[in-house]
């Protein structure tokens, strides 16, 4: 006879454990949207097959990259300008992020009422993409590097404002209380306890911001906000594909070098 002492489930366990009607409907809806999206906008094999020869012929026209010294020299200066946009934008952005993060950081802020305003501003800066900011600044201050720098500043505040605030909120609270007991003001506590404690995290965030700034300063020129991107766009517009490939190659090297450098610095901090 079968052993009847072991308790058995009253009925077999369903494979679909906890799918409520609501969730099922949601699942079907999301699935339908994904399938519709794929059929609408993703490349069909046919389109890829037709495009292939054109990509190959474009590659063929891009090679070899342009090596004319006068051209290379001009591109060199454009690259320098690109780096300047990235570095100046990051530096100013980081400096502005510090007070904004201070105001928005819970428990550290000198003005809790303004905390949400600061957080909202940072969210706005972060969620609107950089090319949109670049368009806005090109329209308002004109074509060129200044618009690019302003874009990077806004971008950096969107990123650093958030992560600086998180680092400040995570700083050890015991020294903060101890310094308050000695009569230190909120600003004193920020400078003497919060920032030293959060320093590794602040530096890390800054290095990430710089890396992102280099990458986006390259494309800002596409909408006229200065830097090497402007040359890239005109090379494409004028069908000068050998120049374009030289620029792409240079950008590749610069971004890679920047990543390598910030990685090295990050390792030193931790």
């Amino acid at each position: 006879m079968a052993d009847t002492t072991a308790p058995r489930p009253a009925r077999p366990v369903s494979r679909f454990e906890s799918v409520s009607a609501m969730r099922f409907a949601l699942l079907v809806g999301v699935g339908a949207f994904v399938i519709a999206a794929i059929t609408d906008v993703s490349p069909s094999p046919q389109r890829v097959a037709e495009g292939m020869p054109r990509i190959l012929s474009l590659l063929d026209r891009m090679l070899p990259p342009e090596t004319d010294p006068a051209f290379l020299q001009r591109m060199g200066w454009r690259l320098v300008e690109t780096m300047q946009i990235a570095v100046a934008g990051t530096a100013i952005g980081v400096l502005l992020s510090l007070p904004i993060a201070w105001i928005s950081a819970r428990g550290v802020t000198p003005a809790p009422a303004l905390s949400y305003v600061a957080k909202g501003l940072v969210s706005l800066f972060r969620t609107v993409p950089d090319l949109v900011w670049a368009l806005i600044f090109v329209v308002s201050v004109g074509l060129g590097a200044v618009a690019g720098t302003m874009t990077i500043i806004v971008d950096t505040i969107g990123f650093c404002g958030r992560f600086f605030a998180e680092a400040m909120e995570d700083a050890d609270t015991q020294p903060q209380e101890a310094l308050a007991a000695t009569g230190a003001s909120r600003f004193n506590i920020l400078c003497a306890a919060v920032i030293p404690d959060a320093m590794p995290s602040l530096i890390n965030t800054t290095l990430f911001a710089l890396e992102m700034a280099v990458r986006s300063s390259v494309v800002l020129g596409l909408v006229g906000a200065g830097g090497i991107g402007q040359e890239l766009k005109s090379a494409f517009d004028l069908f000068q594909y050998q120049k374009a490939s030289a620029i792409i190659l240079a950008v590749f090297v610069i971004v890679l070098a920047m990543e390598w450098l910030t990685d090295r610095l990050r390792k030193q901090v931790s």
Binding site: T182, A184, A193, P196
Partner: peptide, 24 residues
Amino acid sequence: FVFQHHGLVRRLSALSNVVHGFLG
């Protein structure tokens, strides 16, 4: 004021932490 936990800023030197006593 001395707390149960020392409440010092860990990444600073002992001397800097003592100088913090002048923050008021």
